[in-house]
Simulated scan of single mutants.
Amino acid sequence: MTMAAPSAYLYLGPENGEKDAAVSRIRNALAGAHPALDEYLFIASKDDESIHGLSEALTNSGLFSDYSFILLRIASEAKVSTLQPVLDWLKEPTPDVTIVLTSDETRVSATLQKLVPKQNQQTFYEMFENRKPQWIQDFFRSRRMGISRGATDLILTLVDNSTDELKEACARLADYLSQDSSAKHSSVTEEDVEAYLSFSQGVTAFSVFEHVARGNLNGALLTIHSYMDAEPNKLPQLLAAMSWQMRRLLSLSENLSQGMNEDEAMQSVVTYGKPVPIRNLKDKGLNKEAVRRYSPEDIKTILVSLADWDRDIRSWPGDMHRTICDAYAYRIIIRKGKKTGLPRFASLRTVARSSY
Rank of each mutant, 00 (worst) to 15 (best):
Y9W: 14
Y9N: 03
L10A: 09
G13R: 02
P14F: 04
G17C: 03
G17W: 00
S24P: 02
R25W: 09
D38S: 15
Y40N: 11
F42R: 07
L54I: 14
A57F: 12
L58Q: 10
I70T: 08
L71I: 12
A78G: 09
K79Q: 12
S81V: 11
Q84T: 15
L87D: 08
D96C: 02
T98A: 09
L112P: 12
L112Q: 12
Q113T: 15
L115Q: 13
L115H: 10
P117W: 10
K118Q: 15
N130W: 04
N130H: 12
P133L: 03
P133G: 05
W135E: 00
F139R: 01
F140R: 03
M145T: 11
S148N: 09
A151I: 01
D160A: 06
D160S: 07
C170D: 05
A171T: 12
S182G: 10
A183Y: 07
K184Q: 13
K184D: 12
S187D: 07
V188Q: 04
T189F: 06
V193I: 08
V193C: 05
A195N: 15
F199M: 07
G202W: 10
T204C: 01
F206E: 00
S207F: 06
V208K: 05
F209P: 00
N218Q: 14
N218C: 06
N218Y: 11
A220Q: 06
A230C: 06
N233T: 14
N233K: 07
P236G: 03
Q237G: 07
L239E: 03
L239I: 15
A241Q: 02
R248C: 07
N255Q: 14
L256I: 14
S257H: 09
G259F: 01
G259V: 04
A265Q: 05
G273I: 04
K274S: 04
P275Q: 13
V276I: 09
I278D: 13
R279T: 15
L281I: 11
L281S: 12
K282A: 11
N287T: 03
Y294G: 10
S295K: 04
S305A: 14
L306R: 00
L306K: 00
P317L: 07
G318N: 09
Y328G: 02
Y330Q: 08
I333L: 07
R335I: 00
G337V: 05
K339E: 08
T340E: 05
T340C: 13
T340K: 03
P343Q: 08
A346N: 11
S347M: 00
